[in-house]
Simulated assay, not measured.
Amino acid sequence: MSERIIATTDDGRFRVRLFPDPNMPNPREDPDTHVHVITIDTHLGQHRPVDRDGGPLADAWHRICWNRWKGVEIFTRYVEIMHGGIVLESTPDSGPRSLWYMTHEELIDLDFGLLSEAYVEAEKEDYESWLAKDVWGFSIEQAAAPGDATTEWKQIYTETGHYGGAYARADARKKLEFFAKRAANNT
């Protein structure tokens, strides 16, 4: 993962540079997270648990976790039937295996249950991106003299903290388009 220019406007006046953002903290340390995470396997202590306590249903997991073959399935059904919740499993290539869940009451409090699974998935994906060091920032740069091969570029906007390269690239291109349109409207 290295710094690179991902797009330049047709007129050559603006470009966007994507760069790795290694200083982003673990998204699970954000106090605004809503999803609970139970760490199933740290690969013999190779990885840290995702969350410290596992949330309100951690005790239920500990009662059935001995069953290596059916434990995840039983816990998922328990959360769905007894708590009206959602459980998603995470099995990243390099990281702890875990269960991400919310109860029905929490889902209703969050968004009346409208985008529940998407919310759980988003928190899970942010963590997996952070774990894989797939965290990015970008800067919009303006050319001092467009069209010149030796043009110097001036940074006019920077944004950091995008979990996942695909999201960072999409947002970077939108911001590049915004700055190009704004410059065209001002001329």
Rank of each mutant, 00 (worst) to 15 (best):
residue 164 G to I: 03
residue 133 K to Q: 13
residue 141 E to L: 05
residue 111 D to I: 02
residue 36 H to V: 00
residue 66 W to Y: 15
residue 15 R to N: 09
residue 82 M to L: 15
residue 161 G to C: 12
residue 10 D to R: 12
residue 80 E to T: 04
residue 20 P to S: 08
residue 55 G to A: 11
residue 19 F to Q: 11
residue 146 P to L: 12
residue 152 E to L: 08
residue 36 H to T: 00
residue 92 P to S: 06
residue 187 T to D: 11
residue 145 A to K: 07
residue 127 Y to A: 00
residue 171 D to T: 14
residue 7 A to I: 06
residue 170 A to R: 14
residue 183 A to K: 02
residue 65 C to Y: 15
residue 187 T to I: 09
residue 19 F to H: 12
residue 34 H to N: 08
residue 109 D to G: 08
residue 108 I to Q: 15
residue 104 H to D: 14
residue 48 R to A: 14
residue 163 Y to S: 01
residue 79 V to G: 01
residue 31 P to Q: 05
residue 187 T to K: 11
residue 70 K to T: 08
residue 26 N to A: 04
residue 185 N to V: 09
residue 137 G to P: 02
residue 144 A to N: 06
residue 123 E to T: 00
residue 40 I to F: 13
residue 48 R to P: 03
residue 61 W to A: 11
residue 82 M to Y: 13
residue 87 V to C: 02
residue 91 T to M: 02
residue 137 G to C: 09
residue 42 T to E: 06
residue 60 A to E: 14
residue 122 A to I: 04
residue 1 M to E: 11
residue 66 W to S: 10
residue 33 T to E: 06
residue 168 A to F: 09
residue 125 E to S: 07
residue 46 Q to W: 13
residue 167 Y to L: 08
residue 21 D to I: 11
residue 185 N to P: 01
residue 137 G to D: 05
residue 68 R to Y: 08
residue 137 G to L: 07
residue 64 I to P: 01
residue 181 K to H: 10
residue 170 A to D: 15
residue 164 G to W: 06
residue 150 T to K: 08
residue 124 K to S: 10
residue 63 R to F: 15
residue 20 P to V: 05
residue 64 I to S: 04
residue 89 E to K: 12
residue 162 H to A: 06
residue 107 L to Y: 07
residue 70 K to V: 06
residue 137 G to M: 07
residue 24 M to C: 09
residue 126 D to M: 10
residue 131 L to P: 02
residue 90 S to Q: 02
residue 104 H to Y: 15
residue 46 Q to R: 14
residue 33 T to R: 01
residue 43 H to T: 05
residue 3 E to T: 06
residue 166 A to P: 01
residue 17 R to W: 12
residue 177 E to P: 07
residue 65 C to V: 12
residue 39 T to N: 01
residue 186 N to C: 08
residue 100 W to K: 03
residue 171 D to K: 06
residue 187 T to G: 11
residue 167 Y to G: 12
residue 77 R to N: 08
residue 154 K to W: 05
residue 172 A to W: 12
residue 129 S to N: 05
residue 45 G to T: 05
residue 52 R to I: 10
residue 26 N to W: 12
residue 73 E to S: 15
residue 154 K to S: 04
residue 158 T to N: 05
residue 86 I to W: 04
residue 152 E to A: 08
residue 75 F to L: 08
residue 5 I to D: 04
residue 179 F to C: 03
residue 122 A to Q: 09
residue 80 E to Y: 10
residue 139 S to P: 02
residue 107 L to F: 07
residue 74 I to G: 04
residue 176 L to I: 07
residue 100 W to I: 02
residue 76 T to Q: 10
residue 163 Y to T: 02
residue 139 S to W: 03
residue 172 A to M: 10
residue 9 T to W: 12
residue 63 R to W: 14
residue 128 E to R: 09
residue 133 K to G: 05
residue 59 D to P: 00
residue 84 G to T: 14
residue 87 V to F: 03
residue 73 E to G: 12
